[in-house]
Amino acid sequence: MTKNEFLREIETVVEAAPGSLTGEESLAKLPGWDSMAAIGFIAMVDSRLGVVVNPADLAACKTVADLVALAGDRVQD
């Protein structure tokens, strides 16, 4: 999956407008990022990439780019 495709998936999770996320956004300031969205993100990564995100690593994320980094080499630039 490309980074752009992954960002579009995150937009769906947080109910953000398509194409609105670039990666630089702070999760703390991102409307729609809450505990249920975190669960939705784990579900999305599991179903799209086949891995279960470590929730402790997820809790340490500060930005959307950090979420992308969690996917490792499964997401390409």
């Binding site: 505990s35 975190a38 669960i39 784990i42 995100v53 997820l58």
Partner: peptide, 12 residues
């Protein structure tokens, strides 16, 4: 309840 941890446990 730590929802993400419980969900990840459930998936695993």
């Amino acid at each position: 309840m730590n929802g993400p941890e419980i969900f990840a446990f459930t998936l695993r």
